Simulated scan of single mutants.
Amino acid sequence: MNYWPLLGIALVVLGFALRLNPMLVVTVAALATGLLGGLDPLAVIATFGKAFNDNRIIAIVWIVLPVIGLLERFGLQQRAAAVIRSMERATTGKLLILYLLYRQLTAAIGLYSTAGQAQTVRPLVAPMALAAAEKQHGELDPATADQVKSMAAATDNVGLFFGEDIFFAIGSIVLIQQTLLTYKINLAPLELAVWAIPTAIMAFILHSARLLLLDRKLKGAHR
């Protein structure tokens, strides 16, 4: 058995450890893996092309990101913050709990690309969470502001991670099914998806509690 292609994994680990450009690291690692696996350079490039063509929907990001950039340039973040400041009882925790609910529900029905770090958290959710905190507690110090922004990003991650497994046609469910099949456990994707619901509910409860604790912490820090 030829173990040399596994060197690509070491290149990924080394590149990330050295904080190099992730796209460059992954590309070099993939090229190295292909070459060490016995493919000629043209075959490696052809494999890249086929993978991109099979997953060409990822190219949509190059359309979405410039649109988001233009919206931010013309005041999207400021308008989002202004909407929150106009709401009397809005708090950071309550706002993020609503976003968590939205993220989990949409991910559960397969609409996991309707939100995300680039599409919604940076231009909308994080500015709105900051505006809610500033409305309630005044100007935030940099460390507290960073904590609010990081909690907004974490809320998106939790909502997506625990919501998407309820959607039985997602890749992770297929991976779990095939892994179990190797151990002679034959479950339909729908059965796995149903059992993801209790986990998603617990994730919602626990993260919502964290968000309410964040509200309390902000209140205590700015008395």
Rank of each mutant, 00 (worst) to 15 (best):
A90D: 06
I109P: 01
A107W: 04
L130I: 15
A118E: 15
H137K: 03
A131K: 00
K135F: 03
R103K: 12
G138V: 14
P123T: 00
Q136N: 11
T91F: 07
Y99S: 10
L111F: 12
L95E: 00
A90M: 13
Y102S: 12
Q119P: 01
L105S: 11
L111W: 10
G93K: 06
L98M: 13
Y112E: 10
A115D: 03
Y102T: 11
K135V: 01
P127G: 08
L100S: 05
R103F: 04
S113Y: 09
L100I: 05
L95K: 00
L130C: 06
T91E: 12
D141Y: 04
A108V: 09
L124R: 03
G138R: 09
P123L: 02
E134Q: 15
D141H: 14
T91L: 06
L111H: 05
M128C: 09
T92N: 06
A129V: 05
L111P: 06
T92Q: 02
A129W: 01
A133V: 10
L130G: 04
A108W: 11
T120Y: 01
L101D: 02
R122P: 00
H137E: 07
L101Q: 06
A90F: 08
G110M: 07
G110P: 02
L101C: 09
Y102M: 14
I109V: 15
S113N: 11
Q117I: 11
T92H: 01
R122Y: 10
A107S: 15
A107T: 11
A133H: 12
P123F: 00
L96W: 01
L101H: 04
L98W: 12
A115C: 12
P123A: 05
G93M: 08
I97Y: 08
L105C: 10
S113M: 15
A118M: 10
H137D: 08
T91R: 11
L95D: 02
A132H: 07
L95N: 02
Q119W: 01
A107K: 01
P123D: 01
G93H: 05
T92A: 06
L98S: 13
T120N: 11
A115W: 01
Q136T: 15
L124A: 10
G116L: 06
G93N: 03
R103D: 14
Y112W: 09
A108S: 15
V121T: 09
G110C: 02
Q117H: 15
Y102A: 12
L140T: 12
A107N: 02
E134D: 13
A126L: 05
L100D: 06
G93A: 09
T106R: 00
L130R: 08
A115L: 03
T114P: 03
G116P: 04
R89G: 11
T91I: 07
K94Y: 04
L95I: 03
G110L: 03
L98R: 10
Y112T: 09
G138T: 12
V125P: 04
Y102N: 07
V125H: 04
